[in-house]
Design a binder for these strands. Sequence first.
DNA 1: TCCATAGTTCGATAATAGTCGAATTATGTT
DNA 2: AACATAATTCGACTATTATCGAACTATGGA
Lengths: 119, 119
Amino acid sequence: METLTAAELLAALGHESRLSIFRLLVEAGPEGMVVSAIGEQLAMAAATLSFHLAHLTRVGLISGQRESRFIRYSTNYGTMDELIAFLTSNCCHGQACLPKTGACSSTELRRGKTENPPT
Amino acid sequence: METLTAAELLAALGHESRLSIFRLLVEAGPEGMVVSAIGEQLAMAAATLSFHLAHLTRVGLISGQRESRFIRYSTNYGTMDELIAFLTSNCCHGQACLPKTGACSSTELRRGKTENPPT
DNA sequence: TCCATAGTTCGATAATAGTCGAATTATGTT
DNA sequence: AACATAATTCGACTATTATCGAACTATGGA
């Protein structure tokens, strides 16, 4: 993943409103949520919510599809997966720098443990 | 970790210059790097570099300590560890949500191929 | 003390991002 | 068709962020 791309993803998540939206969608799971339902949870003007949804969509973290009058958004797990991989790569360059929470190892587990093998 | 705090960390990393600085320091390992050495790698005005170092320091991602005339910065792995933990928590709420790593497809999506899927 | 070097802080400017009411588009209902 | 609902886009405004030369602070050496 390019540094520029990663920075765009991080910047997209680096705003309280968008991070809240994203986490809400992550918690909602693959089914996602309809915009009005998101709006009910997070108090913000409809235009503002739409603005942030568009931003998250543009960088590829979420995507939405119309369902009659509604538009249902859900997270693109793959993008998030790539971002986590980027953040954890070059991280230990050999030795384990993130051993305590198991964040690294669980990611490696998910990914088949080939990205950054300890030397 | 609070959502606000996480957003601040993500925003700090969500800028190409700062992400480059951070990754350079991550690669440098626990020894870190002196400011002038960072400046040699990443072309930017000294004031700009200082500005970004201060930002990364303020959110706790890096810290610096003086060594005679130099100031040596290094990454605070713990902060990064917490951030990764935050990002991966609530992620699958039980089931594995990141099994496949659809790396290429999600990248294509970001490239704007199918911005608004035809309905 | 005087000078050079390493970094930071200041100040002014330019650029970008966020907010939200109002207008608009899309869909479904009567 | 007329109306209601869901969501986006527009437009204008405000706030924040980034940049960088110049001035400043801190340290070490002559």
